[in-house]
């Protein structure tokens, strides 16, 4: 295994990890504030991908990329992801506020099934692998025989900016302070005059929006979408959140990138059939040495 191969695998892993990270941040923020492992989160990503597919398909002529269209459809997709997440929170999780955590988690699994089978039954969506309406150009640059496209660079750049934005909101704004207060003690936060329901909605909105951003970017890159696409990536994003320290934005981002690199390097060294074993082996080892995850803090400080 040459050094060159390791380097190109790490770069490939960062790219893969960027999508894990964007989804992991939403997972992590929701966990931080509600202690809910929102298994439907991966399906927000999936539904957002179908929404972007439909809108982009309607406005695209030919297969040439119109970046103006991609940008505004991207924004609409993020909003749609956010609205979907808030709707699920209001309709399903909010009435269950006093239910046990386990009940909430089962409800989340139920929402996941409803979204997947709902998409399956929508006539123009269905169970097929659908080709994404636009294909990004392959223009880019070459480093040591490996070709990277500008689209890939753009995707990583946008992911970093969005995650930075989420981090900034949580740690440097009034709303973020309110989020951390609700996470620490919801009753006390309410007594201080914080509108906890609204704060929870904002957290869901940000999480859903980030999943929406990941959805359009990854669909653009991989070129096809399917109603089951959220399951596997959701599981990996959840893992990334735990690896980084669940409830913590920076941890989720770091965990996502790290998991991507581990899978990629694992594939390079051992072959694709061993990649998940390698990555999850590393996860178990990390949690064994550091049960709170890499950047996990004491429970009271989460969000």
């Amino acid at each position: 295994m040459s050094l060159e191969l390791v380097v190109s695998d790490i770069v490939a892993g960062l790219f893969l990890g960027a999508s894990f990270a964007l989804i992991a941040v939403g997972y992590s923020m929701v966990y931080g504030i509600l202690r809910l492992i929102n298994f439907a989160h991966g399906d927000f990503y999936m539904v957002a991908a179908f929404i972007s597919y439909t809108i982009l398909g309607a406005v695209t002529v030919g297969t040439k990329v119109d970046w103006g269209n991609v940008v505004w459809v991207g924004v609409v997709t993020m909003l749609a992801g956010g609205v979907l997440a808030v709707a699920v929170a209001k309709l399903v999780y909010s009435p269950m506020r006093r239910a046990a955590t386990l009940s909430l988690m089962i409800a989340a699994l139920g929402v996941s099934q409803i979204l997947e089978n709902g998409v399956l039954n929508i006539p123009s969506w269905g169970s097929n692998y659908l080709p994404f309406p636009v294909t990004p150009p392959s223009a880019g640059f070459t480093v040591a025989t490996v070709h990277y496209t500008w689209t890939q660079v753009g995707i990583i750049g946008i992911a970093v900016v969005l995650m930075g934005g989420a981090y900034w909101i949580v740690n440097h704004t009034m709303v973020g302070t309110a989020m951390r207060a609700v996470a620490q003690d919801r009753t006390a936060a309410m007594l201080m005059g914080i509108k906890t329901d609204r704060i929870i909605s904002i957290v869901f909105f940000i999480g859903g929006g980030l999943a929406g951003a990941a959805a359009i970017m990854m669909s653009l890159y991989y070129g096809e979408i399917n109603y089951l696409m959220g399951f596997s990536i959701g599981l990996q994003a959840f893992t990334a959140a735990v690896l980084g320290g669940i409830g913590n934005v920076a941890g989720a981002a770091l965990g996502g990138l790290l998991l991507g690199v581990l899978e990629s390097v694992g594939t390079g060294i051992f072959g694709a059939q061993w990649a998940l074993l390698f990555a999850f082996g590393a996860l178990v080892l990390t949690l064994w040495l550091r049960p709170r995850g890499l950047l996990g803090e004491r429970v009271g400080q989460r969000v």
Binding site: D9, Y222, T267, G271, A272
Partner: peptide, 21 residues
Amino acid sequence: AIEAIPSTDQDFSSVIDTLRS
């Protein structure tokens, strides 16, 4: 060696790195 790629994988970049090298 035959590369077995789990059917849930969407990302082939590291496999491509391997076959290139």
